[in-house]
Amino acid sequence: MTDMVMYEEEYRQIQEVCARLHRDANASAVLLIDKNGQLISEAGDTGHLDTTSLSSLTAGNVAATGGIASLLKEKEFTGQFHEGEQINVHISIVAQRVILVILFDERSSLGLVRLRVRRASDELSSVFDSLLAKVQQPSTPSIFSEITDEDIDNLFKD
């Protein structure tokens, strides 16, 4: 399995897509999370949110839903919707490896969110395709080629 790596250029593209989605969908916040629960990008009103915990729980939720899908012989359930009194959550899987989460309130609607998510998903898929191609190029420099055993030891000194 390839590790997830994020570079400056793709990160900027992803942030642009998330910011536009936040605007176009009238969303409160947009989170992009990898399937292992690491937050990749966020847009909108996230200052009051515990995005680390939200990312981990969402990934757990998506993994559990994926488990249910496979028990039912479905490939995957690509979307989930949670309806609350104040906040609604739309969750979808993009490019089979990242999770797009939209938080929205009464200023938006499920229909609008779904419509905007569709376009954003296509754009994000193409960014992740190019990211994957870049990671698989053997010539791409890695931070780990610079790190020494001593650097690692220093991290664990009391």
Partner: peptide
């Protein structure tokens, strides 16, 4: 599967 973010300079 680790997540290495060169943009925010993080290893997860």
């Amino acid at each position: 599967m680790s997540f290495i973010n060169y943009s925010s300079r993080e290893i997860n």
